[in-house]
Design a protein around this nucleic acid. Structure first.
Length: 880
DNA sequence: ACTGTCACG
DNA sequence: ACGTACGTGACAGTT
């Protein structure tokens, strides 16, 4: 038996649009509906093994069924722009897959589907109709299955309806289903129906009389009397509704089923679309497709000294080349052991893979000293291998450049750079070598591995021109050359240095935690009356809100919320709550910090995390493996973990942090005289704000008023909203709004500045920091209120957070430089957004503390002074 | 792979 | 009417 799949195009696209979260490609094109559509289609095709397929679309012209009431169609809600722009695209994508698109002047997609389905269904052909619209259930038949996809929690499940399923769910046959719908009406579809007859009554009537016509004949006998009266008064409405609901099954559509035969979906053209739309998850379906635009590589392996020497001669004369390194990923040795395995170099159009050379480290040292401009996708891993980083000159990091151009992307891998800056497709690492480790497959000269590794240096070299030109266009060159590029060296040094942890103390800390956790667990089990997994929000919710009947209010998508702020409010209701909150805190400390950090300690007794330069939207650095930027400090028990971070013997820490850098940045950026004046004179900025906003003398500011003012200051930095502030302070929205208005009345310059950011973002699509860093804000043009409001707040926050990030980066460079020049035995070990932790020889601590403080204060010059607090200590906790 | 929670600035 | 404060990353549980 053959299978025919018919898809209701607009309906599925609509479902996909609302079911898939916002998604867009790097050009800012919205793609979520197309993504969802293809997901559903692929899923259906995979499981059905369809022989025939077609997709039906409405045309915009009035349809036959509705033509006399054309204006009534016009009252339908118009499509959001984000969806509208995707409609022509999905048609192009389908065409590229050789899937026929069916439309017919004067008919809706429903009618086309109805006609085709009834025309071809037979003992030989089984039809599946894919739609989100339940009206199509009327088409269900012995050989026609209606399939309705439902996406919730990101998972798509499909509900199938054969006639018996319609009967089960609605108690009527598919044919009778028309009459039920017609009687009850459908406001969203502008079907009037009969007033006061709903689903229940309609079903009862049709179950008894089987059709509207028959019910009208027996209208006097109808029960309840209310329905009888309603129908008799609205006979025309009922008939009209039925006409609207009834799908045409004999439309004059010329088709030939052979045109719908499923051919090769995975054509070159459709691959181009998938690449253009940036649907990476679909790419594996195209594995066997030859990509025409793919890069042609001319590679050779260098594994002999004389071959290297002849290449070296060429490199010495070269003006520029691309380079990449491959590390040994497998053996985790002591941290400083060299783990370089291979080097890829592209000179003009020829790529060389240098590998299996005893002296590969020396080769690298020679290469980095060459005069040529050297382009690399990611410099940090290379530079970390080099003995004298300062000797490495003339490097251009391509991914950092791409990040400055668009910091919103989630990766800057070779395929991303090739797509965005070379207009050619190239395969990703996983497409080329799967899950294998590059060094391992390179070892036996695997062709794909060689090719992949060569593309890394090839793309670095050949994307350079476009990418640097784009940087220049956006006025980012200075930031790139003077801040981001040099910063790579500072970050590399910091990673190589690592931070020491006292393993013994860590162990003791973990034991203390485990003891307390065990006691709490016992207490919670006793108070709950049963043992359960406290870490499971689901089980915990059931215990608290069902078994113990606590007043569970706030719900999440999946169940009760058991977040700390919710539990906090429940604390007076049951003594178990305190225990749970403490249990949560301690298990977090144990799993993420005590146990978690222990696993990162290397043979040198230090943790060498990674500091990422191309992750955040605002320009901040991020920290991973482990995250050293979220080590606890706010609670007493938590802050104890900082006592295990220690300097090496004979050294101490200097911890230096900016005081309220973001508010100072705001004062400077906005030029608000009052705020600037506050910073020049006042010691306590929150108190000063309180005095101004609440009209009280500075010495009469109560802690309460100060707390409120502090919240307002935070709110301003985050992109203020009355709602957010009211939540934070547990006050009414009206009061919050009063605070905000008061604030803006006093600090008019701030208001003006924030408004300007939003206006700029709306006009240009991005905002900029003090040093020209760009943050694109695609959300600001959204037609969705919530998304757009988010865009507004981001427009206000990004220049502030981003400028502070710029300042810290410049500051790191200056501190680094000053330390180096001074010859002190000291180095930066951590950066935590507005804080630097420096390890220094004990007898130089005081001088270094002063030097760091000075370098940070003078890093940049703002309209207000920058203040830095620096402390010396034997542990991180002590130094803070 | 996603969700909820919670650690930081 | 809409329903949130901005920026991150890790872990445990669930799908």
């Amino acid at each position: 038996m053959k299978k025919l799949v018919l898809i209701d195009g607009h309906s599925i696209l609509n479902r996909a649009f609302y079911g898939v979260p916002e998604l867009s490609n790097s050009q800012g094109l919205h793609t979520n509906a197309i993504y969802g559509f293809l997901n559903i289609m692929f899923k259906i095709l995979d499981e059905e093994a369809a022989d025939y397929i077609a997709v039906a679309f409405d045309l915009s012209a009035p349809t036959f069924r509705h033509k006399e009431y054309a204006e009534y169609k016009g009252t339908r809600k118009s499509m959001p722009d984000e969806l509208r722009e995707q409609v022509p695209l999905i048609k192009d994508v389908l065409s590229s897959m050789n899937i026929p698109i069916l439309t017919k002047e004067g008919y809706e997609a429903d009618d086309i589907i109805g006609t085709i389905a009834k025309r071809y269904q037979s003992d030989e052909v089984f039809v599946s109709v894919i739609s989100g619209d339940r009206d199509l259930l009327q088409l269900s038949d012995k050989h026609i299955k209606i399939r309705i996809p439902k996406t919730s929690k990101g998972v798509t499940t499909i509900h199938d309806y054969l006639p018996e399923d319609v009967m089960d769910e609605y108690g009527v046959t598919p044919k009778e289903f028309i009459d039920v719908k017609a009687l009850m009406g459908d406001t969203s579809d502008n079907v009037p129906g009969v007033p006061s007859i709903g689903e229940k009554t309609a079903t009862k009537i049709i179950q008894e009389y089987h059709s509207i016509e028959n019910a009208i004949e027996h209208v006097d006998e109808l029960k309840p009397p209310r329905a009888s009266k309603a129908l008799s008064e609205h006979i025309e409405d009922a008939k009209f509704s039925k006409m609207l609901v009834t799908i045409v099954t004999d439309a004059p559509i010329e088709t030939d089923i052979s045109d719908m035969e499923v051919g090769n979906l995975y054509t070159k053209e459709s691959l181009e679309w998938i690449n253009k739309l940036e649907f990476k998850s679909f790419l594996k379906r195209y594995e066997n497709v030859e990509t025409e635009a793919s890069i042609e590589l001319d590679t050779s392996v260098i594994d002999k000294q004389d071959a290297w020497e002849s290449l070296y001669t060429k490199l010495k004369e070269a003006k520029e080349f691309g380079i990449s390194v491959c590390l040994e990923e497998t053996a985790v040795k002591s941290y400083h052991e060299n783990s370089l395995y291979a080097i890829s170099v592209t000179l003009e159009n020829k790529s060389y893979i240098i590998k299996d050379m005893e002296n590969i480290s020396d080769i690298l040292e020679e290469i980095i000293r060459l005069d040529a401009r050297k382009y690399i996708l990611s410099l940090k891993p290379l530079i970390k291998l080099v003995k004298d980083m300062k000797a490495a000159k003339n490097f251009y990091d391509i991914s950092v450049a791409a990040y400055l151009i668009n910091p919103l992307k989630d990766s800057y891998f070779v395929e991303d750079i090739a797509r965005d800056y070379m207009e050619s497709a190239c395969s990703s690492k996983s497409e080329m070598i799967g899950k294998a480790k590059l060094d391992e497959v390179l070892r036996f000269n695997d062709e794909k591995a060689i090719n992949y590794f060569a593309t890394e240096s090839y793309v670095a070299l050949h994307s350079e021109e476009n990418i640097l030109a784009k940087l220049k266009d956006l006025e980012l060159t200075e930031l790139y050359e003077n801040v981001e590029m040099p910063l790579i060296y500072s970050l590399a040094k910091m990673e190589n240095t690592g931070v020491r942890v006292d393993e013994e103390r860590l162990k003791k800390y973990a034991d203390t935690l485990l003891e307390k956790i065990a006691k709490l667990e016992e207490s919670i089990t006793r108070k709950a009356g049963e043992s359960f997994n406290i870490n499971s929000p689901k089980q915990l919710g059931e215990i608290l809100f069902e078994k113990l009947k606590l007043s569970g209010g706030k719900k999440t998508k999946t169940g009760y919320s058991t977040a700390a702020d919710v539990l906090e409010k429940l604390a007076p209701e049951h003594e178990i709550i305190r225990d749970i909150l403490e249990y949560r805190q301690l298990t977090k400390l144990n799993s993420t910090y005590a146990t978690g950090l222990a696993g990162y300690i290397r043979e040198d007794g230090r943790i060498h995390g990674t500091f990422n330069q191309t992750i955040t939207a605002t320009g901040r650095i991020s920290s991973t493996d482990p995250n050293l930027q979220n080590i606890p400090v706010r609670t007493e028990m938590g802050s104890k973990i900082r006592d295990i971070f220690v300097p090496k013997e004979g050294y101490v820490f200097v911890d230096a942090d900016y005081s309220q850098i973001e508010l100072r940045v705001l004062a400077s950026l906005s030029g608000d005289e009052k705020l600037i004046e506050s910073y020049r004179s006042a010691a306590d900025i929150h108190a000063a704000t309180a005095a101004q906003v609440f009209h009280v003398p500075l010495d009469e500011v109560t802690p309460e008023l100060r707390r409120n003012a502090k919240a307002v200051n935070f709110g301003v930095v985050y992109g203020i909203s009355a709602f957010g502030l009211s939540e934070d302070l547990s006050i009414s929205r009206k009061e919050a709004l009063d605070y905000i208005n008061n604030y803006f009345k006093i600090y008019g310059g701030v208001k003006k500045f924030l408004d300007k950011q939003v206006a700029d973002a709306k006009e240009k699509g991005y905002v900029k920091t003090m040093f020209g860093r760009i943050r694109p804000i695609p959300e600001i043009k959204s037609s969705n209120f919530m998304t757009r409001s988010f865009g507004d707040r981001v427009a206000m926050n990004s220049p502030i957070q981003g400028s502070a990030a710029d300042i810290m980066k410049i500051s790191m460079l200056k501190v680094d430089e000053a330390l180096e020049k001074s010859g002190f035995d000291a180095r930066i070990v951590l950066q935590i957004h507005d804080e630097l932790l420096v390890e220094v020889k004990e007898d130089e601590a005081a001088k270094v503390s002063e030097l760091v403080e000075k370098a940070m204060k003078e890093a940049v010059s703002l309209k207000v002074p920058l203040e830095v607090d620096a402390h010396i200590g034997k542990t991180w906790l002590e130094a803070k």
